[in-house]
Design a protein around this nucleic acid. Structure first.
Length: 284
DNA sequence: ACGATTATTGCGTTCTT
DNA sequence: AAGAAAACAATAATCGT
């Protein structure tokens, strides 16, 4: 696939293939095969047919409308009938809209809770949280998927079940931005009872993933408490702090563990663990 | 009152020992 | 493999319109 003229690399643009070295246009394709519109959703498979899909609208923008233009004159009686039909059609649609939204969101919440192996109490609370958001009109202009994910994340926060936002995003059908805006709205307008996350909340799960002894975990817990009370971890990622405490505790217990392993577990960099470990040492 | 811009600080990268 | 430092990005605060 080199250039026939100079043998250089060939770069394929939308409609033509060009040699990067000599600029020779190797082939032209008059048909632009890309999507008609800019894709706002990276993994959407948008083709050139059909109406644009809108995730933020409950029906993805595909609902039926009874139009006004008739094409021909209609009698006054028929006009009044059409007005009535439009009104009733819209009313019926509005109610089914909320119902369908709720059904869709609940299905999504069930899926999330299931793949994340969370208890059913989380599922139920997430669903009712979503319903609250819905009745407070928080959904308009925001994505349903984002709210479903945010409801699950928020429930974990209120129940002190240690899950990071990233962990939810990984399995959610929403981007991190969507989850964030939805969660912010939830937090602001519903006043969630969430405090700052303590690093200790992550310890049990990380300890078992790391396969360290219970004594190591409890030692790590002491480190975490000391660190929190010294105010040294204010604003720091609690997940990373938990990983650092575990590393320090395991290291002192003579468990051959690498900073890298602890860091990967908490989805932070090796340096974050390293610097927090140093914080533990200075606090003592 | 809102929006933009700046400043602070944690975080990840790269280089070094 | 662990530590050090310059560069980065996100968030919070301040200023200007």
């Amino acid at each position: 696939m080199g250039c026939g003229e100079c043998g250089g690399r060939v770069r394929k643009a939308e409609t033509e293939a060009v040699c990067e070295d000599c600029g020779l246009v190797l082939s032209e394709d008059a048909i632009e095969r890309g999507p008609e519109w800019r894709s706002l959703d990276e993994d959407a498979d948008r083709r050139r047919t059909g109406a644009p899909l809108t995730a933020s609208r409950h029906d993805r923008g595909l609902s039926t409308e009874i139009g006004f233009g008739t094409g021909s004159e209609v009698s006054g009686k028929r006009q009044r009938q059409l007005v009535r039909m439009r009104r009733q059609h819209n009313r019926a649609r509005l109610e089914s809209k909320a119902e369908r939204n709720k059904l869709y969101a609940h299905t999504e919440i069930r899926r999330l809770v299931s793949v994340m192996s969370l208890p059913t109490s989380v599922r139920d609370q997430s669903c009712s949280l979503f319903s609250s958001a819905q009745s407070e009109d928080l959904l308009c202009g925001r994505s349903l998927e984002g709210f479903a994910a945010a409801a699950v994340y928020a429930t974990c926060r209120t129940q002190s079940i240690a899950r990071t936002m990233d962990e939810v995003v990984d399995v959610a059908r929403a981007s991190k931005e969507e989850l964030k805006t939805a969660y912010d709205a939830l937090n602001r307008d519903l006043g969630l009872p969430v405090g700052p996350i303590s690093p200790t909340e992550y310890l049990p799960r990380y300890a078992s993933d790391l396969g360290v002894a219970a004594e190591v975990e409890s030692r790590a817990r002491e480190y975490a408490v000391v660190l929190v009370e010294s105010g040294r971890v204010a604003g720091k990622n609690p997940s990373g702090v938990a990983a650092a405490c575990l590393y320090k505790a395991a290291d002192e217990a003579g468990v051959p563990i690498k900073q890298r392993d602890a860091a990967d577990l908490a989805a932070v960099s090796r340096m974050t663990v390293s610097s927090t470990v140093r914080d533990i040492e200075t606090v003592e």
